[in-house]
Structures are given as C-alpha cells and as structure tokens.
C-alpha cells in the first residue's frame, strides 16, 4: 500500500535566527584628531574614535556596558569651534570635527577635576586615579587640610539649599563612617566620586531593581536607598552589580573590607580563575579571586556576552559552600 503523500512540506529552518531589518549604516566621517586626519565610523563617540587609533583619553564615569552619564568630566577634549570643552565619552563625531585631546586647556581641566576629586574624596582604593593624577600633575593639597569628617548619617540628613557658611580654613570633604549593615558588602561613601555607575547598574542598564538613586543636591548629593534605610530594609537583592562597576572601591565585598582592615589583603598573592557558575542554566562566567586558597571576591568579565560583567546574588556571593567548614567567617 502506497503511503499517503505528505501534502505539506514545512520550509527548511532558517540558518540564522530572524533579525530586525538593519538600519542603514551611518557613512564614515572625516575628522582631525590631534593634527592627524582620520576616517572613523559615523555615529561613534569621540572616545571610540580616539581609542581605535590608540589615542588614550582617561575616563571615570564611563563604562561600555552602561549608558554614558558624562558627569565626571575627566574625558573632556577640545573641539575647534566649541565654546566649552566636550565630553569624549558621549559626544558623537561630526564631519570635519577638529579634536585636540591633550591641549593646554584640556590638561588644565583634567588636572583640576582630579584635584577637586582628590581633595574631597578618599581615593586610596582607586589606583587608576593615582596614575591619572601623576599624568596631569594634580596637587590636591592646594585646598588646605581636610575638614573634620561628618558624623554617621549626617550627610544623608542634609537638606538642599542653605548651608552653614565655611570659614575656608579647611577643605570640605565627603568623609563619613563606613556603612556596614549586612554580611555581603559595605558602602564607604567617603570614597564615592558620584559617578552614577552603581545607580545605572542597579537600574535599567543591568539589574532593574532600582534600590539606590542619587539624593540631595550639590555637594550634598549622595547615593541613597529609599528614605536612607539600611540595605536589608531596602529593595536591594544583593546582586552585587553595583560593586562590580564601582571605580573607587566605595562599594566593596565585606570580606575584602575586613581583610583590608586586618591588613591581610594582598593583591600580589591573589590568583584569578575563570569558571562557570554552577547554580543555574544561564552559564555566567565567574572570575574567582583567590588568596591563600580562599575565595576573597567574585567578579565577571565585562566583555563576556552572557553577563556583561553582571551577576546575581548566587554567583556573586554564594561561594562559601566550597570552603572547608569552620573557616567560613561570613
């Protein structure tokens, strides 16, 4: 008996998953960077264009995985015809732009931005910034001795508007006690340069939890939870993505913080091992930072497409089960 003919032949599966129709690529743009003519892809930022040609521009608040907020202003460059300097991290190239990345004006602004930061913020755990300060000759001592640190919570209670006029003998800073309110990570806002990265990572750029935001105004602006409650009472889910993006060590694993306090933190003795998180099927890459045969910190490489550097609480903090019992102090 002849089999029934198959009347419907499904089309062969596509070799590639269907994608939205591409937008027309922006035509390449001719610019001049530090006196050199260059053809760069249209729509790229000045920073992309310069880095692609090996021209180094320092950045602080910029991270390729986050939306640029252009607030730190260390990346400013001079563009001929522009009244003010422009932020390289977010300004897009335009045809005929003439860009100077190390002119005298640029150097003064970068030096001053670094001086202003270093005179008001504790940069001791931000080694990248020290190199920049040497490069631009920043002298944060020019502003006088640092003022007395604020009492715990005092900066968080400040209201916008009128403040007590200073006498100028001491330089106002953001110094304040470390916030230790949970077992996983600490917040030391004496080290905060207000780069907005943690807020972005907690928001639409990665975590979508919106546990933290910038509160207050002016020099009293700060990162805060809702109504300044401790982290355990906030919406925080301890993904640690804010720690991953913080450039100054203001947000830090509690374990690292405790080891630094005890004087046992030693990066020269640390090894980093990449592995895959064992908890779920997503397969996030974990970089385990190991010192003295103990995991001291977990990060994820920002250039891994699965994570973009971001993890969840299990991958970030759920490592103590590999440790011998009894050694676990957290």
């Amino acid at each position: 008996m002849k089999p029934e003919p198959i009347w419907f032949q499904p089309p062969p599966p596509p070799s590639r998953p269907p994608a939205a129709p591409g937008r027309p690529a922006a035509p390449p743009v001719e610019v001049v960077i530090d006196g050199q003519r260059a053809t760069v892809p249209g729509g790229s930022t000045i920073l992309d264009a310069c880095r692609a040609r090996g021209v180094d521009i320092p950045t602080l608040c910029f991270l390729p995985t986050l939306t640029p907020v252009n607030v730190c202003r260390v990346c400013v460059v001079e563009v001929t015809g522009s009244r003010v300097l422009v932020p390289a991290c977010s300004r897009r190239v335009e045809p005929g732009m003439t860009i100077s990345t190390e002119s005298e004006r640029v150097r003064v602004s970068r030096r001053m931005v670094l001086e202003l930061l270093a005179s008001s913020v504790d940069l001791s755990t931000a080694p990248g910034l020290h190199d920049m300060m040497t490069r631009y000759g920043a002298q944060p001592e020019r502003y006088g001795p640092a003022a007395v640190p604020a009492a715990a919570g005092a900066r968080d209670r400040r209201e916008p508007g009128h403040h007590q006029a200073p006498d100028g003998a001491r330089a106002e800073t953001v110094a304040q006690p470390v916030k230790v309110d949970n077992d996983l990570y600490i917040r030391d806002y004496s080290k905060c340069v207000l780069c907005y990265k943690c807020v972005e990572a907690c928001g639409v750029d990665a975590q979508n939890t919106f546990a933290i935001a910038v509160a207050g105004r002016g020099f009293d602006a700060r990162i805060s939870t809702e109504a300044d409650v401790p982290l355990p009472d906030s919406a925080c889910v301890y993904c640690g993505n804010c720690i991953g993006v913080c450039p100054t060590g203001a947000l830090m694993f509690k374990r690292e913080h405790d080891m630094r306090a005890a004087g046992t933190w030693d990066e020269s003795k640390q090894r980093t091992t990449d592995t895959i998180c064992p908890y779920c099927g997503v397969g996030c890459t974990l970089s385990l930072h190991v010192q003295d045969n103990r995991i001291v910190k977990v990060t994820s490489p920002a250039d891994v497409s699965v994570t973009g550097g971001h993890l969840c609480i299990k991958g970030r903090f759920g490592f103590t089960f590999v440790e011998p019992p009894g050694k676990d102090s957290d």
């Binding site: 730190c72 202003r73 001053m112 931005v113 202003l116 930061l117 105004r217 002016g218 020099f219 602006a221």
Partner: peptide
C-alpha cells in the same frame, strides 16, 4: 554652591 545640582565634578566641588 547651594544651587549646583551636584551632577558634574567641576561645579559640584568647584
């Protein structure tokens, strides 16, 4: 100083 929004370093600290 009172009225700076606090976003960018030059104005916030300057």
């Amino acid at each position: 100083r009172d009225e700076s929004c606090g976003q960018c370093v030059p104005c916030r600290v300057g």
